[in-house]
Simulated scan of single mutants.
Amino acid sequence: MLVVDQLSMHLPAFSLSQVTFKISQSDYFMLLGPSGSGKSLLLQIISGLVKPDSGRILFNGNDITSAPAGKRNLGILFQDLALFPHLNVFDNIAYPLRVKKQSGSIVSQTVNELASQFSISHLLKQNVTSLSGGEKQRVALARTLASKPSILLLDEPLSAVDAQLHMDIMAMLRSINRHGTTIIHVTHNYEEVISLASRVGVLNQGQLLQVGEPVEVFQNPRSEFVAKFTGTKNFFRVKGLNATPNGLVYAELPFGKTVAFYTDTIFPHGFVCFPEDSVVLSTQEANQSTLNVFRGYITDIFAQRFGYEVIIDSGFKVSALITRESLDKLNISAGTEIFASIKANAVRFIPEI
């Protein structure tokens, strides 16, 4: 559907270098990277607001690289939302329809349908300056979707919202995508990727380092940067959840193992992950209070910048990061039987929205 082919853009202090990827109909594609990696610039090039120095953008087989933004049928939502402060909610949502000279009946019907979809019908006569942050987000999304764009472009839409609103907007975006809208979403937060993305591209210093499904990218990083930035080598899909009254939850993993963790809110689908440095290794199974203890065999040990990474096969792959002193004390090597322990409060549950 959308092909980004060898896009490059050279600025005095930054270069976007030969970025290539493809997006299919109904994909939820997320560009993940740190601040200054070129994510927003790439989004602006795709939208037509910035012209690249070289490369092509193909949309349904047509070259739109030089097409003006208004002719691309792409909707972009900026981080600052860019609502019109002098207009009420109705007129903000109606703006792109009026620019296209739609009839009054179509404008009214479309605005009311979107307002109902985003639960803001009661706000249509209010000025946007009086709205809460979440209400402004909903108005901005409704306005962006009013012209029925083929692709929705989102620039860090969740970066400035509180935790509850964060979940609400993620659910809204997932619903929009499931109703058929293709989405390209820029973020620096890998948890958003886990919850929302069908595919992800990792960008750093203007270069697209890896593209694939989130599980593939996070479990099999192809570069040191991807591994460190995502920080999610111990990352597993949950098969089932069993909650206890005291807030402890047991997650069943697809390979027959169970991981315990604490959480206040339960979602039917999601992932668990835990950092490598939270994994404690022992050559003997000790009597301890740790709920998560996995027996396995070491398959590899290799040096990292700050210590050593130990890969354990426990029926699934567990990665641990230990110091040189710990490596010498344990006296371990490939093939050594090992017990990997992870405290329940070190395990994170990330819902799949």
Rank of each mutant, 00 (worst) to 15 (best):
E135H: 00
E135V: 00
K136F: 01
Q137R: 03
A140Y: 00
A140R: 02
A140V: 01
L141K: 01
L141V: 09
A142K: 07
R143M: 02
R143P: 01
L145N: 04
L145V: 08
A146W: 01
A146L: 03
S147I: 09
K148F: 03
K148V: 06
P149M: 08
S150N: 14
L152G: 04
L153Q: 08
L153S: 10
L153F: 12
L153A: 10
L154A: 08
D155N: 08
D155L: 07
P157M: 08
S159Q: 08
S159R: 07
A160Q: 13
A160T: 10
V161H: 02
D162W: 10
A163W: 06
A163M: 12
Q164L: 13
Q164S: 14
Q164I: 10
D168Q: 15
D168G: 00
M170R: 15
M172H: 06
R174Q: 13
S175A: 14
N177D: 07
N177A: 02
N177P: 03
R178Q: 15
R178M: 10
R178H: 11
H179R: 14
H179D: 07
G180H: 02
G180E: 06
T182Q: 05
I183K: 03
I183L: 05
I183A: 07
V186R: 00
H188Y: 09
N189A: 12
N189G: 06
N189Q: 13
E191V: 05
E192R: 03
V193N: 00
S195D: 04
L196H: 09
A197C: 05
A197V: 05
R199I: 02
G201E: 05
V202C: 05
L203C: 01
N204Q: 08
Q205T: 11
Q205V: 06
G206A: 12
Q207W: 01
Q207A: 14
L208W: 05
L208Y: 08
L209E: 15
Q210E: 11
Q210K: 07
V211Y: 07
G212Q: 11
G212N: 12
P214E: 11
P214M: 13
P214W: 11
V217R: 01
F218K: 02
F218I: 05
F218Y: 14
F218W: 07
Q219Y: 05
P221L: 11
R222I: 11
R222N: 13
S223G: 10
S223N: 10
E224C: 00
V226S: 12
A227P: 04
A227V: 01
K228C: 07
F229N: 10
T230E: 06
T230Y: 06
G231V: 06
T232Y: 01
F235Q: 02
F235W: 06
F236D: 02
V238K: 06
K239L: 12
G240W: 00
N242G: 03
A243D: 00
P245S: 13
P245E: 13
N246R: 13
G247A: 09
G247Y: 10
L248C: 14
V249G: 08
V249S: 09
V249R: 09
A251C: 09
E252K: 13
E252L: 14
E252P: 04
P254T: 03
F255A: 14
G256M: 04
K257L: 11
